[in-house]
């Protein structure tokens, strides 16, 4: 299993375009977006937007990018590429005789989650660096940067919600890629689901939480974390996310273990 996991990481490391656009670009774009907004305000008003910055809380908010619908498009392309490559190059026939199918899929899954986590951690580092530069530019040294007690719990909570949401996305994309043996057929439904959830979010307002879509229930959990919304909704949201994860992972595993690889 360990060897399979490292083999997947090695394959990804040899596909820099997939690695960057599929796993690292979304969180880095979130940092760039924040930087652009701050830069715009600075150019218009000559003042920095931020006063004191809690580094952990600022990073925790950044993890909300896991629910971004455009982000889901990029993530889905990267995730689907990892599975689709085996169909495209017919390389399942190189791997399947050497390891069990469940191990092969698990190795891909873990490699993808690792890359997604690395992307978030890189964004966290970049965000910290931007905050540091802004603090120095305001002539306050490091005094504007802080880590408040209690922020660590919010940070850990936001990271867990983001990783759970991304794990659900990974399972869904894997399932669709396996069933369709196509990247388009996997990416487009996931993107439409994300866009649909965003539209519902705008039009339905608070009642949106009644709809058990992954990004809506993840938002409910984040609302509790950052805005103090009712914990019951957050718990329900986490339970629904977990149910999505179990269902999509189980269905993907079942589909792959029974799949005929006669014409990849």
């Amino acid at each position: 299993m360990r060897a399979l996991f490292f083999a997947e990481l090695q394959k990804l490391s040899r596909q820099p375009a997939v690695l960057f656009w599929g796993f690292l670009s979304v969180p880095l774009m979130a940092v760039l977006f924040r930087l652009s907004l701050d830069g715009l305000v600075y150019l218009r008003t000559g003042q920095m937007t931020r006063g004191e910055v809690d580094l952990l809380l600022s990073s925790a908010r950044l993890f909300g990018v896991s629910g971004n619908s455009v982000g889901h498009l990029f993530y889905a392309i990267g995730l689907s590429s990892v599975v689709f490559a085996e169909y495209r190059f017919a390389t399942w026939r190189l791997l399947v005789p050497r390891a069990s199918r469940s191990q092969l899929l698990a190795a891909k899954y873990l490699a993808c989650l690792t890359c997604l986590a690395i992307g978030l951690l890189l964004a966290l580092t970049a965000n910290g660096f931007v905050s540091l530069v802004q603090s120095l530019m305001q002539g306050e040294g490091l005094s504007l940067l802080s880590i408040r007690p209690g922020s660590l719990a919010v940070f850990a909570g936001a990271l867990s919600i983001a990783m759970l949401e991304l794990a659900v996305l990974t399972s869904l994309v894997f399932l669709l890629t396996i069933l369709s043996r196509s990247m388009f057929a996997a990416v487009i439904p996931v993107f439409l689901l994300a866009i649909g959830a965003s539209i519902l979010q705008v039009y339905l307002g608070p009642t949106r939480e009644l709809i058990p879509l992954p990004s809506l229930v993840a938002d409910a959990a984040r609302d509790w974390l950052f805005s103090g919304a009712a914990p019951e909704r957050a718990l329900m949201g986490l339970a629904i996310l977990t149910a999505w994860l179990v269902a999509a992972t189980g269905a993907g595993l079942l589909a792959f273990t029974r799949q005929q690889l006669s014409a990849e």
Binding site: A3, K11, F89, A90, R93, R98, A99
Partner: peptide
């Protein structure tokens, strides 16, 4: 099995290294 299938972005040595680790 059938035509040999490989990852075009890996070298021969990388393929064999990878499969050696699985053996």
């Amino acid at each position: 099995i059938e035509a040999p299938a490989f990852y075009p972005f890996l070298t021969a040595r990388e393929h064999l290294d990878m499969l050696a680790r699985l053996s």
